[in-house]
Amino acid sequence: MRAAKKTSRLGVFHRKDILFYCALMAYPVLQFVIFYIVVNANSILLAFRSYDTMTGAVTWVGFANLKEAFRMMTQQLELLDAMKNSFLAYFVTLVIGTPLALLFSFYIYKELPASGIFRVLLFMPSIVSAIVMVTIFQFFSDRAVPEIFTKVFGAETYQGLIENPQTRFGTVMFYNIFVGFGTATLMYSNAMDAISPDQVDAAKLEGAVGIREFVYITFPMIYPTFSTFFITGVATIFTNQYNLYSFFGDGSSIQTYGYWLYVKVAGAASQSEYPVLAAVGIFLTVIAVPLTLIVKKLLEKFGPSED
């Protein structure tokens, strides 16, 4: 009898809360189902279909689109270039951007001089519109820098950093690393703030200060955050545009897969051009998924532990 009463009270309470929770979550879940699951499922199916522009008829074409996508990805020079640039751009942002983001985060976490200003400056690009940031950066790179060089080094006319094909890639990468600091610094410094002060004090007593503290205490403690960033970065190798469209529209001489796909989809004259692009997307997924899982496994296996 007592047990039944308890269940009954619990059931009433639970039911109302569940109803409320469902009502609240229904809309976002529906959005997720439609705009993520259905869209991606449709994209996968699209790779096996063809679409007639005139009649709207959809027919199954087996692996024809995949064959064409494979041919393009292995033979078209611009796609070979895009593959190379996708990995190169990721590698550059990983090798240069990640250590610097960790360093800046540690600096802010330790509340060293001007850390407040750093926090604002590094996060500013994330707040300001991307187009505005790109425009400011373009003017700085292509007008201000040549002007400075001319005044400092002499009368010769210098090309802008983006204008000059020799410096263009590096300049775009610099921009991407710079604007990427905001989110990374925020996440890392928040993770660092969650470290127990007792542990830090104990480490200090053992002589772990400065860089030693970072290596033996801070980094292991924020390792889950770091590995999340690392893993999601690998997953986006083929979707990251690196702001190329903001810089160059559809005429970028630097191509990554993320940029190429965006330009192709945006510029498609009809839906009949989507299936091959969807097939390219499948191949990129086939590359990205195992790579991401391998990286995850490696990070779990070889990363530092809290112990």
């Binding site: 007639d52 522009t53 005139m54 510029g267 004259a269 009809s270 009949s272």
Partner: peptide
């Protein structure tokens, strides 16, 4: 031409 119509952006200005 049907090939043109089904692949218009292949024949686009740019």
């Amino acid at each position: 031409n049907q090939t043109y119509i089904q692949n218009q952006s292949f024949f686009g200005t740019h």
